[in-house]
C-alpha cells in the first residue's frame, strides 16, 4: 500500500504544482505581463534601429537586443492563455477563435527573429535587413488582424 502511495504522491506533486501555479495566474496579471513583454520587444526593435542606422554606437548592443528579441519571440505563444481575451487588453478575441492561424504568425515571428539574431551575430548586413523585414511582416500581420486599432 505504502509503495503505491509514494509514486502517486510524486506524480501528483509533479502534475499538480504546475497546474496550480497556472491556475493561480489571474487573467489580469497575464494581460499585464503580455503587455510588458510586447513593450520590451518593441523597445528592443527601437534600440535596434538606432544602432543599426548608426545614430548611436555601443559595442555589443546590437547583439544583445536582437538576442533578447529572438528569445522573447521564441516564447511568445505562452503570452496568450485562454481567458485573457477580455479586460484591459488590445488583443482581439479572434486570436482564440483562429488559434492555428494565429500560432502560425507567432512561429513566423520566432523564425524571423532567430534569423535576425544569426545575421547580426555574423555581421551580415544584407541578411540583417532582410530578416528585419520578415520580423516586420510577422509583427504587422498579427497587429493588423489581431490587435485592436487605435481609438
Amino acid at each position: 500500500m505504502r509503495r503505491r502511495i509514494l509514486p502517486a504522491l510524486v506524480a501528483c506533486t509533479a502534475l499538480c504544482i504546475p497546474a496550480l501555479a497556472w491556475s493561480a495566474t489571474a487573467p489580469a496579471d497575464a494581460i499585464k505581463y503580455r503587455k510588458a513583454v510586447m513593450e520590451a520587444m518593441s523597445a528592443h526593435v527601437g534600440a535596434f534601429m538606432l544602432l543599426n542606422f548608426g545614430k548611436v554606437e555601443h559595442e555589443g548592443h546590437l547583439k544583445a537586443h536582437t538576442a533578447a528579441l529572438a528569445d522573447l519571440a521564441a516564447q511568445a505563444k505562452v503570452l496568450f492563455p485562454a481567458g485573457t481575451d477580455t479586460g484591459d487588453t488590445d488583443a482581439l478575441p479572434l486570436i482564440w477563435k483562429e488559434q492555428e492561424q494565429f500560432n502560425k504568425l507567432l512561429t513566423d515571428l520566432e523564425t524571423s527573429a532567430g534569423k535576425l539574431r544569426l545575421a547580426v551575430q555574423s555581421s551580415d548586413k544584407p541578411g540583417t535587413m532582410a530578416a528585419f523585414k520578415q520580423v516586420g511582416e510577422a509583427c504587422k500581420g498579427c497587429h493588423d488582424r489581431y490587435r485592436k486599432a487605435d481609438d
Binding site: A47, K140, D144, D150
Partner: peptide
C-alpha cells in the same frame, strides 16, 4: 518596414 520610431509595428489599414 512599417516600424514606428518606438519600435512598434503598424497594424490596421496602413499595414
Amino acid at each position: 518596414y512599417g516600424v514606428l520610431p518606438d519600435g512598434d509595428f503598424a497594424g490596421s489599414s496602413m499595414s
